[in-house]
């Protein structure tokens, strides 16, 4: 049950304020409807989602120094706007978890996927595989929900796209969990140039609904 609690969109960790890059993609005309949303999410899952799942699983495994792991996360996010968003989401998650889960000894400042892993490690019954599934799911569910709001999409069709990606998300999470204890430089670092480029345009834009 604890994984359901953490991944619930209503869990008060601030994720709803971020669009996972979909707002920038909509503003640039790269995502215009369900079909382009589907390929956006597939690309996001195999890049940013894969990296987040690997970092979350590594953090939950307890096999790594958290400061070093957090530095590995930062080196995988060249965009300062995305680093700031990842930091904010990580801090908010840790603060929420400290209070909700009564886990006073959690650190307070980590990148979001590393924070996910740390929270899983501190939560009864959860481990690296759960952290990886959470991070992979979060990589597509957040932007899908934001796309419904931004483009007025049919929610059934938008979430159909997410559902169709579940086997791929499962495979990515399984790979992340299996490699959780590998040396840190071997963690994946798949980049999605347009997420970085879009995030900087988005940060410079004056009219926006989401923080990132």
């Amino acid at each position: 049950m604890n994984l359901l609690l953490l991944t619930d969109g209503r869990f008060p960790a601030g994720g709803h304020a971020h669009s996972g890059g979909i707002e920038a993609a909509v503003m640039a005309g790269r995502v215009t409807g369900v079909d382009t949303l589907a390929v956006f999410l597939a690309g996001r899952l195999t890049t940013a989602g894969r990296v987040a799942a690997a970092l979350a699983a590594a953090a939950a495994s307890g096999a790594h120094d958290l400061v070093e792991l957090d530095a590995e996360a930062a080196a995988r996010i060249p965009s300062p706007a995305l680093r700031a968003a990842s930091r904010t989401l990580g801090r908010q998650l840790l603060r929420t978890a400290r209070s909700v889960l009564d886990a006073a000894d959690l650190p307070d400042d980590l990148h979001h996927p590393v924070a996910m892993g740390v929270v899983c490690a501190a939560t009864s019954g959860l481990g690296p595989a759960d952290a990886a599934r959470w991070a992979a799911y979060d990589a597509i569910s957040g932007p899908a929900s934001a796309a419904v709001r931004l483009l007025g999409l049919d929610p059934f069709r938008a979430w159909g796209v997410v559902a169709a990606l579940m086997p791929e998300a499962d495979a990515i999470a399984a790979g992340a969990a299996a490699g959780a204890a590998r040396p840190l430089t071997h963690l994946p670092s798949c980049s999605a140039p347009l997420l970085d480029i879009g995030a900087e345009h988005h940060a410079a834009s004056e009219v926006r609904l989401f923080a990132s």
Binding site: G21, A25, R30, V31, T36, V39, F40, L41, A42, G43, R44, L45, T46, T47, A48, A192, P193, L194, L195
Partner: peptide
């Protein structure tokens, strides 16, 4: 797969 995605290139 996914390389030509609007999230990637």
């Amino acid at each position: 797969p996914g390389a030509a995605s609007p999230a990637v290139t």
